[in-house]
Design a protein around this nucleic acid. Structure first.
Lengths: 248, 248
DNA sequence: AGCTAATTCGTATGACGTACGAACAGACGC
DNA sequence: GCGTCTGTTCGTACGTCATACGAATTAGCT
């Protein structure tokens, strides 16, 4: 465990020797994951992880160089959940891509913090496996390599963005439900602002219109509504990519 | 400035009175923004912001309740950059949405940290203006309200995900360029892993194939390549949405 | 001038990541 | 058995962060 400031990914750094280490990196990642899921990313502390393992804080630094390494391990542990078992892998590029996308969204949403710590993501073994699987999904489509990568990238983009926004929407809804004052304050502020400038589109949607009921369209706020909206957007994207890539 | 733990958005909290405050929330946001752009989000510290303003650290707490408020102000300041001047606003829903999407991506990529602090985003005045503008973009398409919201959401999802991944790719490329050792270590680790399991798709792409040159497709790594890939994905998505929403 | 409330900010607290080095323990040669 | 080496654990200490508290200063008022 060179503690030095080398910039290798944690997986390229030799782990503890094999005399008698009490823990493993996997255990550390698993504990950190459990804490993050239960109490949020901010609750993940070196001290906390160590305590949960029954170790002293500094013991962790025998297994990783820095907390960023722990986060990398957590991210990779999540990516493992993205992998679809071989026998469930659908035939046909469209079904396969859809399955991967759907599962990716589910997993990302199950670990909301993963999206906010995405910047420091490293490319680990499970990232590689996930990528391999995405390639396999597009294998039968008769596409040149660049087009396959582009298709995968477009879907990945859409999935990540949707997961991000879905998590955001659900968080907002949950917070709002727990705190009526905030809703009141937000609405009060919003309506005041609405009147102070030209917000004609918004007014038409949410405000009272001159003669009668306004349209009153609300963005979807339940998990199901968000999921089905995701589904429609994904299929639209695939339609469009198929058309542009000249696919069946 | 009730310092208490109320959950109102910062914009609903009365600011400093008007006797003689030395600063404004806007100045604070601007300074914080400059620091984040120049040195990264982690460099944004209450102490640092205050120093840059020539104030004591605790003075900031007369203007905001908490650092999260500062971040909210920063986010909203960024959203202001998304707004397209009225005279540049294109006619036709497709051109208008494309313009909004393009600009959004540019701005998000210009402030990479905005994506990683997106979870604590609050809905401020510029968010409202941006939303109004998105609604205006879809106004002429003859769509029912729900369909308009769905179209906007799909594009937003794709744009955010693409910006996220583009920033990630460019960051990786920059770091790699600055640190050859890391590239070497990553490649060494990657090729070792490649041999240790079944990665047939990846091998076909990057490895040597039996009789001759492999395909050697590389994901795009320059800003231009990423931008044109974004453009194609966006148009594909719009194609698909147009088809599914029964649009011209 | 004197009062009051607005505004500034020094000090102190507790949490965090982690550098350093001491302490402990298992394996191996003798 | 007994040292010895080195793998493993972890207590202590440091610097940084957000921020609670309350004292000091100042601007506008009568």
């Amino acid at each position: 465990m060179a503690t030095g400031n080398d910039s290798r990914p944690i997986w390229a750094v030799p782990g503890p020797a094999d005399r008698k280490p009490r823990y493993t990196r996997e255990q550390i990642a698993a504990v950190a994951l459990r804490i993050a899921d239960a109490e949020g990313f901010d609750a993940v502390t070196m001290k906390r992880i160590a305590a949960e393992l029954g170790a002293g804080t500094m013991t962790l630094y025998y297994y990783v160089r820095t907390k960023a390494d722990v986060v990398a391990l957590m991210q990779d542990a999540i990516l493992a959940e993205l992998l679809i078992p071989d026998d469930e892998f659908p035939a046909g590029w469209r079904a396969a891509i859809t399955a991967v996308a759907r599962r990716t969204r589910q997993v990302l949403m199950a670990h909301p913090w993963s999206l906010s710590s995405l910047d420091e993501a490293q490319f680990g073994p499970n990232a590689m496996r996930h990528f391999e699987q995405s390639l396999a999904a597009t294998a039968g489509a008769g596409l040149p390599a660049e087009a396959r990568l582009e298709l995968i990238a477009a879907v990945d983009d859409y999935v990540a963005g949707n997961a991000l926004h879905s998590v955001e929407a659900l968080t907002r809804a949950r917070v709002a439900a727990a705190d009526p004052d905030m809703v009141a304050a937000a609405i009060a502020y919003g309506t005041a602002l609405l009147e102070s400038e030209d917000f004609s589109q918004l007014k038409a949607l949410y405000g009272e219109s001159a003669g009668g009921q306004a349209e009153r369209a609300m963005p979807p706020l339940t998990e199901d509504a968000l999921a089905s909206q995701f589904e429609r957007g994904l299929q639209a994207l695939l339609d469009g990519m198929a058309g542009r890539l000249d696919l069946a």
